[in-house]
Each structure stands twice: as C-alpha cells, then as structure tokens.
Write a protein that binds this DNA or RNA. Structure first.
Length: 454
RNA sequence: GUGGGUGUAGCUCAGCUGGUAGAGCGCUGCGUUGUGGUCGCAGAUGUCGCGGGUUCAAGUCCCGUCACUCACCCCA
C-alpha cells in the first residue's frame, strides 16, 4: 500500500444514467416489489432477456430507432475490420427482445403465453428531467398464435390499475382508445391517410385544437373533415357514454363499429373491476405504427405535463417467422420516469436509509460476541439489524443509528437485572427486552415509504 | 442533432472595475470520563472543470475544450 497515491481522477456523473442514494433505492425497491408481486398475483411468470440484440433486429421495426440504439463492441476488436459495422446493440425497449424470444422459443412455450419482464433499457437520446439514457421498464404482455382473444385487452390494464392503487402515489388514470375507432371514423368521412391523420391528432395535447385543425387542412382535409376529427378526439368519458357521443357525430363505418364494441368491453371490465381507473379517451393515438387495436396511456393527476408513465397496446403482428404470426397485447410502466418525478419533486421519501430496524450496541470489544449473538437471535425472527461498528460512547452509537434513521438501539446488559434493554430513539423510551421474544411494531420492521403532499 | 445556462470545500453557493480562497450546512474533536438530538468553543477539507493566451499578477479577461443542465425533437 505504499504506492504514491496518484491524483484521484475526478469523478463525474454521466448524464442520463441516474444512480440513487440508499434511501431513494429503498423507495425504488418498494415499487419494484409491488409491481412484481402484482404481476405474479395475476399469474404472469417472469423472464429476463439478454441486454443485447443484433442491431438489424433492433432496427427492424423501422422508424428512427437507429439514432437511439447504443452499439456494443469489443475495445480490442481488430481495427482493420470494418469499424462501421456494429453487430450488437443494447435493447431500447422490452418488446423487441420479447418478440425475438417468442420466435426463438415458440416450440417450448405454451400459448397463449404471458410473461412479465422488469429490466433496464437504454436509449441514446439527450436526457432531461424524467428522461434517461438508462432506465427501468416493467412490462407485461400476452401473446398467442394466429389469433389473440380480445378479452386480454380488457384484462391487462387491470393489472396496472391494481399496481397504481397500491403505490403511495396520486391518482393514475389509464386512458384507453381503440385505433379502429379513429380509423373507421376517418374512412367514414372520406379520409384515406389514416396514420398521417393520427399523427397529427396525436399532437393535440401539445399544440392545441386550432393548430391541429390547420395541420389537418394542410394535409389535405376539408375544414369539415378536420372539425369532425377534432370532435371525435374531444370525446372522453369514464363510462360507456362515449358510444352515444360518437354515434351523435353521424359517421358510419364497420371498422368504427368494431372499435366501439372493443373499447366498450375494455371500459366495462374496468368499471366492474377497477372503478375509476380507466377512462375512454378518443384522442389517444400512440405514435407507433404497429399498434392495431386497443392503445393505453397513463397520466398522474396533477402532473399531466409529464406525459405517460405507462403505455402500450395491441399488436396484431408482435412477432412473425414468415409462416406464423403472433399477435400480442402489452403494457409497460416507466419505473424510472415515475420515480424520477416523485423523488425529484420530493414527494416520496423513505423513513430511513437502511433496512436495519435495530442497532445492537457494543459495550466494549470483549462484548462484541454477545452483541453478535443478540443480532443473530433478532435476525432469526426476521428483525433486520446490525451491530455497532465500534464500542464508542453510547451517545455516539445512538447517533450512528439516528443518522441512518434506525429507530431502535439495543443495549446488552443494561437492565437492572443484567438483562438487555432496547431504546426507541425517537421517543427516548427504553425498556427491558429479550432478543428471543422482542418484536418491533409492524410499521417499524421495514422502512416506510412516506408521501409528502406537494 | 440545434439553441441557451452553469462548472469554486462532501452539499448549496458568494467572490465587484484582475491584487495571496470565503460563508452556511455537513464532518471531526472538546465542553459532557459511557445514552444522541439543543447550545458553545476549536479544527480539517480546494488541481477555482481542463488546456492555452493576455498580464508584473487570472477564480475573475480572451480563445478552445470537456462535463453537467434546461429547451426543441422524440419517447417511458
């Protein structure tokens, strides 16, 4: 250890790659626990896919994905190899890897196949608040062979509604639409460019109805057609009332009928099983082309400007090997984005920065074995604890606990009869206790996730 | 990718028209010879992001560069 210490390289954060402090991580882990438990409560098994996919598969979905894909190369790769060719890239969502996984394992999976997947994903875009280059997503999807029953489109948002109800966050609203509604509606009024029109209407929240009207007319719509599109997009109901409102616009098309029926099933299921969680919102489009039926977007009440924390939809061709097509429906929570907001705004904190509920004090180094035995006894009954690092003055040991938010300090042999005592350092109350029977109040056993109104 | 802002102690920041590096919080010790939080006293901590230039002299002015950050685009 006598190397002359080289000047330490300055450490700097890397933009878009967030790292939490222990107290924040406790909040994140709580969220992940709730998400996982709820997914499993609904019978979803878990898979994990590798972090990399072949670049051509990542780019295969088309669009402008290429800019956001991180390539993975070996630093020692031959320099005379074609440096421009990167074989592997980090996945930028969990849907593309899942589709590949389904194809690869089709012979060994039972269909309809459902799974959940909670993993990091990477996107090489400019980060800003709530948008990162490395972040965690939690997905559920159901995929079948050839045909996928539509009831899954109604069941999948119930899982997310249950998660949002359990988490100590505000009110989450899952907004649902069915692409067949605008598609049939547009065709019914003589618009042919369905996706182009959807893309424009999708900007409604950002630019407002006047601009959308103008953009639609620029794209070739008559002003009557544009007005009709805006009238459809304005419909939003938390019950089946949207059907009547669409009918009142007087447009007829078989695809429109299909869409209204499908969305009605979703909303009805929501009303029965997760009252208040779902709302039919006919302006929800989702920019991505591959959604074909139901689409979901989720907003946190009071933070609508933060956009969607949880979205997804139905794909009629999630995966295809050329002979067989696998339709699917899925929905995904942006865990990092949600936490980034809630922690960043100080709306959530953990009651302590460690799982330890008890600090077992050490009287002197000769007493450490006794303290360790006490800790072992507490742990054997599920009480998280740690032993003090040094036999410092008790004031120091108490302060060690206080700094970390550990609520109890255990004093070996402090009782009048030579037995132990445990002190609640918040109240100062100190009582006789035995390590083989003492139990903290249930709310102290684990760190609490505290919500601050803000 | 385009445009703005900011880089000084562990953190938040001050530092004027260039003249020897500061505060608060936090941290350590003591008051308090084994039960914290309050209070008082004492103390430690800096490649002033990096490189170059101007100058007798640069945290300060100029050029470059890097990083972080905000907005646009797009998404979770």
């Amino acid at each position: 250890m006598n190397t002359p210490a080289p000047r330490a390289a300055r450490v700097t954060p890397i933009s878009g790659f967030p790292e939490y402090l222990p107290a924040e991580r406790i909040v994140e882990q709580y969220f992940l626990d709730v998400i996982r438990e709820t997914f499993e409560l609904h019978g979803y098994p878990s898979i994990e896919t590798r972090a990399v996919e072949p670049v051509d598969r990542l780019l295969g979905k088309g669009g402008d994905a290429d800019k956001e894909v991180y390539g993975v190369t070996r630093l020692a790769a031959d320099e005379d190899e074609d440096a421009g060719e990167v074989e592997f890239g980090l996945h930028f969502d969990l849907t593309v890897p899942f589709a590949r996984y389904v194809l690869e394992n089709a012979g060994r999976l039972s269909f309809p196949f459902r799974r959940y997947q909670i993993q990091k994903v990477w996107r090489g875009e400019r980060p800003q608040e709530g948008r990162y280059r490395e972040f965690t997503q939690a997905d559920i999807d159901v995929v079948d062979v050839g045909e996928l029953s539509s009831h899954y489109e109604a069941e999948i948002p119930l899982v997310m509604a249950e998660i949002f109800a359990k988490l100590p966050i505000g009110r989450m609203t899952i907004q649902v639409n069915n692409r067949k509604i605008p598609e049939g509606f547009y065709r019914g009024i003589g618009i042919d460019d369905i996706t182009g029109t959807l893309r424009i209407v999708d900007k409604l929240d950002k630019v407002g109805p006047e601009k959308v009207q103008g953009m639609l007319e620029e794209a070739g719509c008559t002003s009557e057609q544009a007005e009709q599109c805006l009238a459809l997009a304005a419909i939003r109901t938390d019950d089946l009332g949207f059907v009547e409102q669409v009918r009142a616009l007087g447009v007829e098309h078989p695809t429109l009928d299909e869409g209204l029926e499908a969305l009605s099933r979703v909303i009805r299921t929501g009303m029965e099983n997760a009252p208040g969680a779902l709302v039919a919102d006919l302006k929800i489009a989702r920019g991505l082309d591959y959604y074909t039926g139901t689409v979901y977007e989720t907003q946190l009440e009071g933070y609508e400007s933060w956009g969607s924390f949880c979205s997804g939809g139905r794909y009629d061709a999630l995966a295809s090997d050329g002979r067989t097509t696998y339709p699917g429906v899925g929905i995904s929570i942006g865990v990092s984005r949600l936490l980034g907001l809630l922690l960043g705004k100080g709306l959530l904190t953990a009651s302590r920065s460690t799982p330890a509920c008890v600090l077992v004090a050490v009287n002197d180094e000769e007493g450490r074995p006794e303290s360790t035995r006490i800790a072992t006894a507490l742990r054997s009954r599920g009480v998280p604890c740690e032993v003090a690092p040094k036999p410092a003055k008790f004031g120091k040991q108490i302060r060690y606990a206080e700094r970390r938010g550990i609520p109890y300090v255990w004093f070996p042999g402090a009782g009048e009869d030579g037995g132990d005592q445990v002190k609640d350092i918040r109240s100062g109350e100190q009582v006789d206790a035995r390590p083989d029977v003492w139990q903290p109040p249930a709310e102290d056993l684990r760190p609490q996730i505290l919500r601050r109104e803000g």
